[in-house]
């Protein structure tokens, strides 16, 4: 399958990424090459094969529900965040 500029624009939106004009052509051709390669999976007969995969067949393990908290972790994260005050992260204006 070929990736085109319109699809790249859609993927940029989904990815919160901007691909600069000078790199668009190269990225479109690289993505096309990769997607065309992985199209080989259509050659495999997977009829009746489970469509979800988990590393372990065991159920998710359970543990005792004992509350625990390490406030120093959130303090450290806030201290090193790009912008924070009064135990909050500060972001640019959301409502215009």
């Amino acid at each position: 399958m070929q990736v085109d500029d319109a699809l790249l624009t859609k993927l940029e939106k989904l990815s919160f990424l901007h691909v600069s004009d000078d790199k668009r052509e190269e990225i479109v051709s690289q993505l096309s090459e990769i997607v065309s390669f992985v199209d080989n999976l259509s050659e495999l007969d997977t009829k009746g094969v489970d469509d979800t995969f988990a590393m372990s067949d065991r159920a998710t393990p359970l543990r005792e529900d004992i509350p625990s908290s390490n406030p120093s972790i959130s303090e450290e994260i806030l201290k090193h965040a790009p912008n924070s005050a009064d135990n909050f992260f500060i972001v640019p204006k959301i409502i215009e």
């Binding site: 259509s42 495999l44 489970d50 469509d51 979800t52 995969f53």
Partner: peptide, 13 residues
């Protein structure tokens, strides 16, 4: 379906 799900089936194989 064609890519992600197919890849998970391939993992089983």
């Amino acid at each position: 379906e064609a890519y992600y799900v197919k890849a998970q089936k391939t993992r089983h194989i």
